[in-house]
Structure formats: C-alpha cells, structure tokens
C-alpha cells in the first residue's frame, strides 16, 4: 500500500504538478475515505496527503486538494500532532489564502496551545493601540474641562453672590438648568438639538461645551459654598484696609477657600473622568467608545476589562495628585 502510494508520489513528482490527473485524485480520495471507514487512520492520512496540489489552470481539483489537506489536518489534530495539523492547514492557505476553515483551525489551535496569560497579553497587544488613542481623547476632554470649569464655576459663583439681580438671576438659572438635567441629555441637545436651531457643532466642540458648562454649574455651587464658609470678618477687615470688593475677593477670600474646595473639587473631577464616557454617544471616539468598538468586533471582553483598568489608573493618579495638593495648600491652618 505504502509502496503504491510512494509510486504515485514519485509519479506525481516525475510528471510535475501539471501532470496530475483527475482520476488519480479521485482514487486517492476514495482510498482515504475507505481507510477512514475501516479505522485505518494512518492509511487514510497517507492517502489524503498524497493528493497533489493543484496547478495553475487546473480548476477541477482545487476543492479536492483543500478538503484532503483539511482531512489531514483534522486527523493530525485528533492524534494531538498540533504542529502537523497547522502545517496541513497552512498548505491549504498557500493555495487558497481565503480559506476560512483553515484559518479558524490555525487560530483555534494557536489559542488553545497558548497559556492564559499569554493569550491575555496577545489580546492586550491587539486592543491597546486603539484603547490608548481613545484614552488620549478622554484625557484631552478631562484636561480641557478641568481648565474651563473652575473659571466658569468661579464666574457663576461670583454672579450668584452678587448684589445685582441682573447678575444673580442668570447665574442661578444656569446652575438650576444644568444641575437639574442629565448630562447625557445636555450633550444630546447640544449635538443633535442645536443644529435644528441653525448651530451645528463638531463632536469635540459639542462635548467640551456640554462638559464645560455642566461642570461649571457644579463647581459654581461648591465655590459659592466655599466663599460663604469664610468668616464675614475677613471681608470686613479687607474692606477696612481700603480694599475694593475685587481685591478683597482675589487676595483674601478666594485664596482661603482653596483648602476647603480641594476635596469636593477632587470628587467632581474624578466623576468627570468617568462622565467623559457619555460623550461616546455623540460620535466621539474616546476610551469607552474604543472599548465598545473592540468588543463589538472581536466579542472579546478583554477590551472592556482593559478600558476599566485605564479608567482606574486615571482616577487613582488623580486622587493621588489631589491628596498631594491638599497637603501643600493650607499649611497655615496647622498649629
């Protein structure tokens, strides 16, 4: 039998791939099937292996070669010859680069043979580039909002504390409106709603306006409470020195609020890191959206876990930074 096969092989080699006859292929396939049926797995493998590769223009045998090699791969897989199985599947791919079954077989063998941690690393490698560029966008949103919102918050807070009604009322209204509705709704309105009023914004602009105003409104109330917590005597002493209201605020009152503001502001900014995920709904590709895209493409939960790790990293670093700042500010309160 083996001799016969060798002869066929030699004949194949002598004649070259172009000389392979359809009749030989049919014969080999039948031998393989018979051997399989009789449980002679080695014979079956040899028969299938002998099916020659198709030559250019030899359209008829294509399917036979592929299915023969796939049979070889499966037989080898069954006797745990993984390298051999992969080799057979590769043979198929060498001729039919789009062969899905061969690809899947190789992929699943490689995955199965990989240790868990290595598989995880490989996933990380695959997802990290897009997750990191999403994370960069998240950081950009966070930093811009951290710069915008304290300024906006201070202006709104001072407006709220003003003795002029024309300043007090609009500032009260902004706080009431933006703290009283969901951020998600505000983002939707700014991005999808404003165009119908003739204002079309880029996603990034819309996101920054939404986050900026929303966080300004929250910080305004924190800053106002901070200012009101400073004893009235401080303002009186400043005025008695001849300071204007502005000088008194800038030199005396506001600097004393810093220490009290840091814990609640740190809270808000930590929440902000997570709230940036909401802008993924208005066509912004940031960390959450990137993770979502990876997950939907590969149905692999590692992308979600990785995004969580990145968010945790950000919030941890923030907490650490704010704790250091809190230690430095307000040394004057220590005895």
């Amino acid at each position: 039998m083996i001799l016969a096969l060798l002869c066929v092989l030699c004949a194949g080699l002598l004649h070259g791939p172009f000389q392979a006859h359809a009749a030989d292929v049919d014969e080999l396939m039948r031998q393989g099937r018979d051997a399989m049926a009789e449980g002679r797995l080695e014979d079956a493998e040899a028969a299938y292996l002998a099916v020659p590769a198709p030559g250019a223009g030899d359209q008829e045998d294509e399917g036979e070669y592929a299915s023969a090699r796939m049979q070889v791969a499966r037989l080898r897989l069954a006797r745990e010859d993984y390298d051999g199985a992969v080799q057979a599947a590769r043979d198929v791919l060498a001729h039919f680069s789009g062969h899905a079954e061969a690809k899947n077989l190789i992929a699943s063998i490689e995955r199965d043979r990989m240790p868990t941690w290595e598989r995880f690393l490989k996933d990380c490698q695959r997802f990290l580039p897009s997750l990191l560029s999403g994370a960069a966008m998240t950081l950009l949103l966070v930093f811009c909002t951290i710069i915008i919102s304290p300024v906006g918050g201070l202006i709104i807070a001072l407006g709220r504390l003003s003795s002029f009604r024309v300043l007090r009322m609009p500032c009260w209204f902004i706080i009431w409106l933006f703290r009283g509705t969901p951020l998600l709704l505000q983002l939707f309105f700014i991005y999808y709603g404003l165009p119908s009023l003739g204002i079309t914004l880029k996603p990034l602009t819309a996101a920054l306006i939404g986050l900026g105003v929303n966080y300004s409104a929250y910080l305004a109330e924190i800053i106002r409470a901070g200012i009101e917590s400073i004893p009235a005597g401080q303002m009186e002493a400043a005025k008695a020195l001849g300071m204007t209201y502005g000088q008194a605020m800038r030199r005396v009152i506001i600097p004393q609020t810093y220490k009290r503001l840091i814990p609640p502001v740190a809270n808000e900014f930590t929440a902000l890191i997570k709230d940036t995920a909401l802008v993924s709904t208005i066509a912004m590709v940031e960390l959450m959206r990137a993770a979502d895209q990876m997950f939907n493409t590969y149905f692999n939960v590692t992308a979600i876990i990785l995004a969580g790790v990145i968010y945790l990293f950000f919030t941890t670093v923030f907490t650490f930074i704010f704790e250091r700042i809190e230690e430095r500010v307000g040394v004057y309160e220590k005895r």
Binding site: G233, E236, A240, Y332
Partner: peptide
C-alpha cells in the same frame, strides 16, 4: 481710617508679615 476688631480678623492664609504688608502693597 484704621479699624481693629474684637475678633482680630487676621488674614488666616498670610504670615504676620504678609498681613501687615497686604494693605500697603495691594491698596
């Protein structure tokens, strides 16, 4: 017109020197 209060009302975030310099510098 200088004023001295019952509760002192020193600027808590400034040193003694800073408190005394504040008026001349800022005002």
């Amino acid at each position: 017109i200088g004023m001295v209060f019952q509760q002192f009302n020193l600027f808590a975030h400034m040193t003694v020197l800073g408190n005394v310099m504040e008026g001349p510098v800022t005002v």
